[in-house]
């Protein structure tokens, strides 16, 4: 028993010493970045955040959630800066003055992917509306994010444009998960899904899914950086948010974005757009 007590005492002592060794960072030098899953799952943030931290000496707490949840955090003042891709919701966010500035950062596109055998026969169809109609008519499984993310918002818009309400149908299932996990579900179930190109390319090697529909103007995927309005929430670190927002649209960062993924996938995952007018992208 004595030896046990000694061991336990030693363990306890070392644990108490650990208490002091948990990493801590002063909050004025910390910013909370709420972002969509695609920027993390594609690996882009792993390339950008260290550059920003080195340059600005801010410590970035990246919380990767859907665009919907990211904006909900912004509305509550629980984040300082957002990197999101849900333009309609973003406009509303700005109108309600939850954000103090919104800048165009980059774009890529959404694609409709599915099994190579393509049982619904959507390959080569020109518009997303037509493709969605064909999937609905064939009754083949479609996997939706169902999580209020930017991709989900886009998908809902596309269903509406096709004049369909997929909810409640047997061929329509919602995962409520991030893009990467949703792609895995779709691959396992040999189902169709809507995805951003970056996440698809990053995960392609493990997926048995082919690109079936692309190039429709409706499938544009645009990312903006939004500074959360400190006038609404005094605890928001506006200097830090501004530093990150400026960093994202700086020439150096834009060059990194434009070349990210070229070595691995042969083509860039995102196309830099800072300073461009949204109209030039067809928004």
């Amino acid at each position: 028993m004595k030896r046990v007590m000694q061991t336990l005492f030693a363990v306890a002592l070392s644990l108490v010493m650990m208490l002091g060794s948990l990493p801590a960072v002063a909050s004025t030098k910390t910013i909370i970045l709420a972002t969509t899953t695609s920027t993390q799952d594609s690996g882009l943030l792993d390339a950008l955040i260290p550059l920003f931290e080195k340059e600005s000496h801010y410590f970035v707490k990246t919380i990767a959630v859907g665009s919907g949840q990211a904006m909900a955090m912004g509305k509550k003042g629980e984040a300082d800066v957002l990197l999101v891709h849900s333009p309609d919701a973003e406009k509303k966010f700005m109108q309600d003055s939850y954000g103090s500035s919104r800048k165009l950062v980059m774009h890529n596109d959404f694609i409709i992917v599915g099994p190579a055998l393509d049982p619904a026969g959507i390959k080569g169809v020109k518009t997303s509306a037509e493709a969605f109609k064909k999937i609905a008519a064939s009754g083949k499984l479609f996997i939706s994010r169902g999580d209020n993310s930017g991709t989900h918002a886009k998908e809902k818009l596309l269903w509406k444009a096709a004049g369909l309400t997929p909810e409640g149908n047997k061929w329509f299932q919602q995962t409520g998960l991030g893009m990467g996990q949703t792609l895995n579900v779709a691959a396992e179930k040999k189902a169709y899904t809507l995805t951003d190109r970056a996440t698809y390319l990053a995960l392609k090697k493990n997926l048995n899914l082919s690109v079936l529909v692309e190039g429709d103007a409706r499938l544009l995927n645009v990312y903006h950086v939004i500074e959360v309005n400190a006038a609404k929430w005094p605890k928001v670190n506006s200097a830090g948010g501004k530093a990150f927002s400026d960093f994202m649209v700086s020439g150096k960062t834009q060059a990194v974005i434009g070349s990210f993924g070229v070595d691995k996938y042969g083509s860039p995952l995102f196309f830099p757009d800072a300073g461009k007018r949204p109209e030039s992208l067809g928004l």
């Binding site: 899953t37 993390q40 893009m179 990467g180 996990q181 792609l183 895995n184 990053a202 090697k205 493990n206």
Partner: peptide, 9 residues
């Protein structure tokens, strides 16, 4: 969890 959603099984 993160590596799974990044496809790095």
């Amino acid at each position: 969890v993160m590596e799974t959603s990044m496809g790095n099984f």
